[in-house]
Structure formats: structure tokens, C-alpha cells
Amino acid sequence: MSSTEQGTSSAAPAEPTTAPESAAAPEVPESFYYVHGKDKVVHKVSAGALQHSALIHGMISNLGYTEEQAKANPFPFENIDGDILQMVVDWCNQHKGKPTPPEDTNLPKQKEKLFDLVLAVNYLEIKELLTYCCKQVAMMVKGKSPEEIREIWMIPTDAEDEAAEKEAKKRAGKEAAGETAAAAGDAK
């Protein structure tokens, strides 16, 4: 589990604590990188753990940062909530250098965070975790009736969809009219 410090910015990150290492120490010194989410809390994560994320792995392979440079330039993921990023970092640390077993007991269980977790994992391109999360989402409706599925997955009715579509068209029309009026005003 990695630990973090609050309130550091991406430009000048505070000294984060290191994630625990596995029992067998690597022969070659491991390189570390730094990431933060919307809450600016910086997480120090080993390159090995970050290999799970195709997105970050692609970024660090191109950079060739030194330890100092990496510390000074944490990867900002402003679109990911801090607690979600924490879950993802924990998972990457737990699965550093090993494949995920088919039934992984170390995976995040918080159902209320599942939606944001899926989006984050999808964005970070962590294939194995994404597969697990999608399976969790699918399992939510196992054996349920259409009405129950509608509630669990917050599916609007056809009437609600139509009303929303009408509303969106109306809003777009108003916006277009507003822009035209503004343009006419500018011309005067």
C-alpha cells in the first residue's frame, strides 16, 4: 500500500513515502515515478507497478527521467478522484510483476466507487483490472428482472430519453440563437 501526503502540487511535490517492496529485493535498483489525481495528493509508484497501466508505461518509456526529474514532474491525472487513484495505485502495487489470478481477492470491493473506478481504469488502460471491474458491473444484474436492471444501471425509460433529447435540442437552439444575437450585436 502506498502512502501519500496531502496538499502538494504537481510542480513541487512533497516527499511521499515509498510503497512497500516485495520480500525479495531486486538486484537492479528500481526506478520510481509519481502520480497525482484531482486532489493533488502525490503517490510514489515503482516502474514495475506502473507497467500494469499501458498509458503510464507508454509515457515513462518515452521520457527516460532520472529519479530527481520524476519527483519534480509527477503525472497529473486531474480527471481522476484522489481516492480512486489511491485504489488503482494500491492494486498496481499489489500486483507488481505478477499476473492477476482469475478470482482476485485483492481487488477493490467498493461498489459505490465502481463507476468512477471503471472510467479511471479505462483511461489508464489497465487491462486486467478493467476486465475485473467490467465483470463486477455485469454481475450486478445477474438474475434480475428488466425493472430491477433499470434501477441498478439507472436506465431512463424511452419517454425519459425522448424528453431529454427534446430538452437538449431546445437548449442547443437557444444557444445558437444567443450566439447569433451576440454576433449581430458585435457587428453593430
Binding site: K135, V137, A138, K142, P146, I155, P156, T157, D158, D161
Partner: peptide, 25 residues
């Protein structure tokens, strides 16, 4: 693409029930 990944784990009975929720589904 995410919906596709979720639906991969749904069997045809679930997808049929889901199809009954709305035209959009």
C-alpha cells in the same frame, strides 16, 4: 467500448432483459 466490455460478461438472457429496458439500451 466500455459498454462492450461489460456486455461481454452478460449472457443472452441478461442482454434480452436489458434490451427490454429501453430502445437506447
Amino acid at each position: 467500448d466500455l459498454l462492450r466490455d461489460v456486455f461481454k460478461f452478460c449472457d443472452p438472457f441478461e442482454l434480452y432483459k436489458l434490451s427490454k429496458c429501453s430502445k437506447r439500451t
